[in-house]
Every structure is written in C-alpha cells, then in structure tokens.
C-alpha cells in the first residue's frame, strides 16, 4: 500500500462517487455529500419515527427526541428570549445537522463533513447573512448603531467604527474556524495515536489506551462543538433582535 493511505490526513480526502460536470462546475456527488445525505435522513427519521406514536409516557426513543427538542428550545429561550421562537426550526436543523455530522464522523471508515472549512464556513455565512438581514429588517438603519457602543465619546468614532465593523466580520470566520479546527485536530490526533499502536508492537498498548480515552473525549467534543455552534448562532440572533 502506498504511504499516502496511512497518512493521518487521508481521512479528509474528498472522493467523487458519482462524477457530474456542468461546464467548469464540478457537481460530483462526493463522499462528503453522501454523509450529509445520511445525516439528514438519519436526523429526519430519528425525529419522525420517535414521535410516530406519541405516548403520554414517552418511551426511550420518544424521550431522546423530546430531550433534543427541549435542549434547543431552552437554549433559544435563555439566549434570545420569546422573539427567538420563530427561528426555532432553523436553529434546530442547524444543531441536528452539525451534531449528526460530528457523531457520524466518529464511526470508523466514515467521513466527517464538519472537518472541511468550506462546509462550516457555508453554514456560518448563512447564519451571518441571515442575522444581518434580520437585524436590518427589524431595526432598519438604526441597526448600524451597534457600530458605536454606548458611552463612547463622539471623537472616538473614526477609530471605533472601523474596529467594530472588522469585529463584526470576524464572526463567521471564528464561528466556522472553531468547528472546523476542533474536528480536524481531533480526528488527526486520533489517527496519529492509532498509527503508534501498530508501530510500537507490544508497547502499543499505551497508545491504544490513549486512543480509547481520546475517542471518549472526541465524543464530548462532537457534542460540545455542535452546542457551541448553535449557542453562538443564538447569541448573534439575540444581538440582532435586541439592540442596546
């Protein structure tokens, strides 16, 4: 086997499964797209099947569906308030999509689509543009007053306004970079330590134990990053809905 196949980064390679070209556009159905489809189907069927027979005393699956619903609903209520309720479908879909992407990546031989910055950046860009549009729709041009924090003397404006604009534009970048960096670093680290297991022979037990521990930590990170991505979306939405 070639050395590349053992590379810890080989897992992030995008392979076209069904080639499709439209002019200069490469619209191939890749392994990344395949896992996005799987995540969508899994998330939809999980919620649909779990709530198919909605009992008063919920069973195991129904409890899980209700917990995930309440988790996101509470997050929106605590961070956005009552006005955020109409954005629940979007935020819940975002949470499930990121969470299933992170968790599917933990299955051996699978592909983690959240480990590609273009995927996370696309999601962050949708959030960023959506939140900006909501802010302008709700407050009109008054929304621009967020560029001047309360209590800033007017002669500081030429310095503060550009800094605030730049600070606003770092949002989608840091939002997407955080998810991407966490997933990529975690999966690479797992593969590197797993490589030591085979190399060290008998002493490979030590990295094997480490890999077991890291897998647990990666599961926590998968949940934590989906949570962080969603809660930051809520915070940005709150900033746009409630100006100071």
């Amino acid at each position: 086997m070639a050395a590349e196949e053992h590379s810890p980064l080989a897992q992030f390679e995008i392979k076209p499964l069904v080639s499709l070209r439209l002019g200069d556009l490469d619209l191939s159905y890749t392994n990344s797209a395949l896992f996005m489809t799987i995540a969508m189907v899994l998330a939809a069927s999980f919620l649909l099947l779990a709530t198919r027979r909605s009992a008063l005393v919920p069973g195991r699956w129904q409890s899980m569906a209700e917990i995930s619903y309440e988790f996101v609903a509470n997050m929106i209520r605590d961070n956005v308030g009552q006005e955020g309720r109409k954005y629940f479908p979007f935020i819940f879909s975002l949470f499930m999509f990121v969470l299933f992407g992170n968790l599917l990546g933990m299955i051996p031989y699978s592909f983690t689509y959240t480990s590609h910055i273009i995927v996370t950046f696309a999601m962050a860009a949708v959030v960023f543009i959506g939140v900006t549009v909501i802010g302008f729709k709700k407050h009109g041009l008054h929304f621009l007053s967020f560029l001047m924090p309360a209590g800033v003397p007017i002669f500081m404006a030429p310095l503060i306004v550009p800094i605030e604009i730049l600070s606003y534009f770092t949002r989608p970048v840091s939002l997407s970079l955080r998810l991407f960096a966490n997933m990529t670093a975690g999966h690479t680290m797992l593969k590197v330590f797993a490589g030591f297991v085979a190399l060290l022979g008998v002493f490979g037990v030590v990295p094997l134990l480490l890999v077991a521990a890291l897998t647990g930590m990666e599961l926590i990170i998968a949940f934590l990053q989906a949570y962080v991505f969603t809660i930051l979306t809520c915070v940005y939405l709150n900033d746009a809905l409630h100006l100071h």
Binding site: P149, R171, V235, D239
Partner: peptide, 9 residues
C-alpha cells in the same frame, strides 16, 4: 456577550 456582545443579557 459571546463574541461581540454589546451588553450582558
């Protein structure tokens, strides 16, 4: 705020 907060909730 989480990243760019203008005020505490």
């Amino acid at each position: 705020g989480q990243s760019i907060g203008y005020k505490k909730p």
